[in-house]
C-alpha cells in the first residue's frame, strides 16, 4: 500500500476548547489508484487532505497514523516533511490564483520544486518547467513560463499548478477541489488531463470534491464524509449503485440529474450540516436522516463492513437494501 491512514483525527484548539474536525479516518490508497473524497462544507474533507500534507493550521492537533510508503508521517519533523512535500506527495489547490505567488513568473514557480528536491540549477529547472507546461497542454508554454499568474486564465493557471505538482513525479497527488472555481467545459478538460497523467505515470490521486458526480467519473474508489466522519467508502460504481449509508443515498437523490424530467420533486434533506459543536453523542446525521431511530441519537454509529473495501458507518446499514425512503418533504 502506498498510503495507509488509520484512526486519523484532527482537533482544532479554540476558545471553546478542542473541536474534533476529523475523527476515525481510516482508509488506504494503492499505487496508481484514485480515491475520491466527497463531502459538504464542514465535512472535514479538506482538513483530511491537509493532514496528509502536514499542512494543518497551527492550532490543529493531528493524531492517529498516516503511513506513506511504509513511513509514519504523524509526528514527523517539519524538515523531513518538507523533503517529502512537493517531491513524493504534491498538492493541487482550489484557487490557483491564491496558490501561485502573483509576484513571480509562472515558470520560476513551476521550477521551484525541481530546484528544491532535485538540486537542479535555476536555468535547467526553468527549461524543464517549460517542458512540463507543454506536458499539461498549455498553449505556447514558452510564453506561459515567462508570464505572471494574472496574465493566465483560470484554466491555464490550474494547468500551471498541475505542472508544478507533477514536476518531481510524485507518487501521490492530492487535489482539493481542483476544478470548483472553473467553468464546466474547462473542468472537463482539467479532469481529463489529470486522468491522462495518472495513467501515464502510475501516480495515485486523492480527489477532494463537493460534487459526487465529479468523483463518480474520475475515481476508482470513494469516501463520503459528513461532519468529520467517513460515512461510507467503497468502489465508486458499487457505492453509487447501491449506497449502504442513508447520507450517500440522500446526496445521490438530492442533485438534479441532467435528463430528468422538469419539476420532478427532488429529495430534500431537512436542516443543514451541523456545526462542529452541535454534534451530540449519536450519529451526526441523526435528525436529518429519514431512517433515524432512537439509538442513532444516543450512540455513535458503528462501522459496518460489507467486504474488504466496502464500509458504512450506520446503525441501520445492513437494512439499507430493504428500506425505502420517503421522497420529498
Amino acid at each position: 500500500m502506498l498510503l495507509e491512514v488509520s484512526n486519523l483525527a484532527v482537533d482544532l484548539m479554540g476558545t471553546a476548547g478542542a473541536q474534533r474536525i476529523v475523527s476515525g479516518g481510516t482508509f488506504a490508497l494503492d499505487e496508481g489508484e484514485s480515491l475520491g473524497v466527497v463531502g459538504e462544507s464542514g465535512s472535514g474533507k479538506t482538513m483530511t487532505a491537509l493532514a496528509l500534507m502536514g499542512l494543518t493550521p497551527e492550532n490543529a492537533r493531528v493524531s492517529g497514523s498516516i503511513r506513506f510508503e511504509g513511513r509514519e508521517l504523524t509526528g514527523l519533523r517539519e524538515e523531513a516533511m518538507l523533503a517529502l512535500r512537493g517531491d513524493r506527495i504534491a498538492m493541487i489547490f482550489q484557487e490557483p490564483m491564491t496558490a501561485l505567488n502573483p509576484l513571480h513568473r509562472v515558470g520560476a514557480q513551476v521550477a521551484e520544486p525541481l530546484v528544491l528536491h532535485r538540486g537542479m540549477t535555476r536555468e535547467a529547472a526553468f527549461d524543464r518547467a517549460v517542458q512540463l507546461l507543454d506536458h499539461v497542454r498549455l498553449a505556447d508554454p514558452e510564453r506561459a513560463a515567462r508570464a505572471y499568474p494574472f496574465a493566465l486564465s483560470g484554466g491555464e493557471r490550474q494547468r500551471a499548478m498541475i505542472a508544478m505538482a507533477i514536476g518531481c513525479s510524485p507518487r501521490l497527488v492530492i487535489a482539493d477541489e481542483p476544478t470548483t472555481a472553473l467553468d464546466v467545459t474547462v473542468q472537463a478538460r482539467i479532469l481529463a488531463l489529470i486522468d491522462g497523467l495518472r495513467a501515464e505515470s502510475g501516480m495515485a490521486l486523492m480527489l477532494v470534491s463537493h460534487d459526487l458526480a465529479v468523483v463518480a467519473g474520475h475515481c476508482d474508489r470513494v469516501i463520503v464524509m459528513y461532519a468529520g466522519l467517513i460515512m461510507e467508502s467503497g468502489p465508486v460504481e458499487v457505492v453509487l449503485r447501491e449506497p449502504k449509508n442513508p447520507y450517500t443515498r440522500a446526496l445521490l437523490e438530492a442533485r438534479p440529474q441532467p435528463g430528468a424530467s422538469r419539476g420532478r420533486r427532488l429529495r430534500t434533506i431537512p436542516g443543514s450540516p451541523p456545526i462542529h459543536h452541535e454534534i451530540g453523542a449519536g450519529c451526526p446525521f441523526a435528525g436529518r436522516c429519514d431512517l433515524t431511530i432512537d439509538i442513532c441519537r444516543t450512540t455513535p454509529p458503528p462501522e459496518v463492513r460489507f467486504s474488504a473495501d466496502r464500509l458504512s458507518r450506520c446503525h441501520r446499514a445492513r437494512e439499507m437494501g430493504s428500506l425505502n425512503m420517503r421522497t420529498g418533504a
Binding site: M13, G14, E58, N59, A60
Partner: peptide, 9 residues
C-alpha cells in the same frame, strides 16, 4: 499548538 491559540480575548 501554543497556548496562545486557546486564549483569545
Amino acid at each position: 499548538m501554543s497556548a496562545g491559540g486557546l486564549w483569545r480575548p
